[in-house]
């Protein structure tokens, strides 16, 4: 079995799906000749031609807006938005149209579209290259939001996203694009959207995270003696409430770690779900370690912004010793 990083598995998934699905189109800035600024689309244009792997103008509304039109008219576009901060300009297209197409046509039209987008911080990036807007998009009806945390999942989730009949925003954590390598089957496989994964079973507390934070959360937890049950959400919307609630009922304690800002971050929704469904099982208030409610900083300060081992371990102690 080949040992691949996330960039390579995404590339493999795109190639395999394009070979299979003649209606699939890849479009975005620098995705063709250059193979993408992170090389996720490397070699695709050579294999499938300029009509199906399209280098677009620098125009995010153009990319997402025309992809919506394509999706309604029979194609399966997989658009790339080069960095997550550039996703803000086509938000209107995503919120006003991609997410509403099925509803506003009462099922006559749908929008089977994937928007892939490098995401998150920790890469000494430029301003607006390190955003984590998953909660804003989860608040938007009609779309699905996916964040893989490892190469194996990236492949299976991306193939599911491409085959999904609804619009999917697929966030790729840049910080672990190449940092994790693992065995990934050559042949295609899917991982269902909307299903979290229990990465490690445990009984003392439930720890929930996703994306690049999974790795750092796991590394921090390895330094404690607590038996944590670690959940990787994988899909942010729709949320796998069942897996979360079952785990919290078992452990009675919960910590959520995410990179995005705190206020109205996804942890807030997870806590609300736990309160609604497992309040009387709780032994301690649910804790969260998140980014701060400030704009994502340039890199001299990003180490302070991102949840780190120290903050995670302190929160674990608070949850356990309450």
């Amino acid at each position: 079995m080949p040992i691949l990083n996330m960039v390579e598995t995404i590339n493999l998934a795109l190639k395999q799906e394009m070979k299979k699905d003649k209606k699939m189109i890849v479009l975005g800035e620098d995705v063709g000749r250059n193979g993408g600024v992170f090389r996720t689309t490397d070699g695709l244009q050579k294999l499938f031609g300029e009509e199906r792997v399209v280098d677009t103008p620098l125009s995010e509304i153009g990319i997402v807006g025309s992809a919506i039109g394509m999706a309604v008219n029979g194609l399966h576009p997989v658009a790339e938005i080069q960095f997550s901060g550039f996703l803000y300009s086509p938000f209107d297209q995503i919120i006003s149209h991609a997410g509403r197409m099925r509803t506003r046509s009462k099922g006559r039209f749908s929008c089977p579209l994937v928007i892939r987008c490098p995401y998150g911080g920790g890469i000494r990036g430029l301003e607006l290259h390190c955003e984590s807007p998953e909660a804003i998009l989860s608040h938007t009806p009609g779309i699905k939001v996916v964040v893989p945390s490892r190469p194996y999942d990236a492949k299976g989730l991306l193939i599911s996203a491409i085959r999904d009949p609804d619009p999917v925003i697929f966030f790729e954590p840049m910080r672990i694009y190449r940092a994790i390598k693992e065995e990934v089957p050559e042949k295609e496989y899917t991982i269902p959207l909307g299903k979290a994964s229990i990465v490690k079973e445990g009984t003392d507390l439930t720890v929930i995270s996703w994306g690049a934070m999974m790795r750092y959360t796991q590394e921090a937890l390895a330094k404690t003696d607590y038996k944590a049950e670690i959940i990787d959400l994988r899909t942010i919307s729709p949320l796998d409430t069942e897996t979360i609630v079952n785990s919290v009922k078992k452990t009675g304690r919960c910590l959520i770690v995410h990179e995005a800002a705190k206020t109205c971050g996804l942890a807030a929704e997870i806590i609300a779900q736990i309160n609604e469904r497992a309040l009387l099982h709780l032994e301690a208030p649910v804790e969260r370690v998140t980014g701060f409610d400030v704009p994502y900083p340039l890199y001299k300060l990003e180490g302070h912004y991102l949840p780190d081992e120290k903050r995670i371990l302190r929160a674990v102690e608070r949850v356990m010793k309450f």
């Binding site: 189109i25 025309s66 039109g69 309604v72 008219n73 209107d92 506003r104």
Partner: peptide, 25 residues
């Protein structure tokens, strides 16, 4: 026929996409 678009211009890129899909197909 698409549903009426209420925001004044957001469907303009969709026109391009729909036509593009016709061309590619």
């Amino acid at each position: 026929i698409f549903p009426f678009t209420i925001p004044s211009s957001t469907h303009i890129p969709h026109c391009t996409g729909v036509a593009w899909a016709s061309k590619l197909q």
